[in-house]
């Protein structure tokens, strides 16, 4: 009986752990139109790391209608986007080593995807973050908000102890 209870507890714990991990993994898609499928991402404060996969579900090649996913503070977006347009496709439309970029995938074309994993240590609850595609001009419409939630102490403790 005790073994059965221990087994149940283990299953519940693994299940809970899996759910927490899922909360920190995101997928965003874009296609042959200049548009993300999601306009808001909510990151729980319990996430120490975030894995973001951008998937291009269209058919166009990267040089024609390539997209990426770039995260920055909202106030920095226009400056990064303009510098990115000048950087060109070979640099994934991103200024090199720009500290204002929190995370970014490479530019992908139809059928391709790329994943970026980044720490939430830099993120602050209440800060205004925008994710966008830095291909020239796409950022004017292909963008969304990333909201980093404050973590409850209990949840954070549970996460850090895992």
């Amino acid at each position: 009986m005790q073994k059965q209870q221990a087994g149940f507890a283990l299953i519940l714990l693994l299940g809970a752990g899996g759910a927490l991990a899922d909360e920190c993994a995101f997928q965003v898609t874009g296609g042959d139109a200049i548009r993300f499928d999601q306009r808001t991402l909510e990151v729980p404060g319990s996430c120490l790391q975030v894995a973001l996969t951008f998937r291009h579900v269209g058919h166009s090649a990267a040089r024609v209608m390539g997209h990426n996913w770039v995260l920055a503070k909202s106030k920095d977006v226009s400056a990064i986007a303009n510098a990115g347009a000048a950087a060109g496709l070979e640099r994934n439309y991103q200024p090199t080593n720009d500290p204002r970029i929190i995370a970014a995938t490479k530019v992908v074309g139809g059928g391709e995807s790329d994943t970026v994993t980044f720490s939430t240590a830099e993120l602050r609850p209440g800060e205004d973050y925008t994710y966008f595609c830095s291909s020239p001009g796409h950022w004017s419409v292909m963008k969304g908000k990333l909201v980093f939630r404050a973590a409850s102490k209990e949840k954070l403790a549970a996460t850090t102890s895992r």
Binding site: A33, A61, V64, M65, P136, H138, S140, V141
Partner: peptide
Amino acid sequence: TGAPCAQCHTIAFGPQLTPYGRQFKLN
């Protein structure tokens, strides 16, 4: 650009510019 007219224009073909179309002209 490789993009269809509809990316820059609210109607697939015609002068009304989308935000992307405005960026294209601006740049």
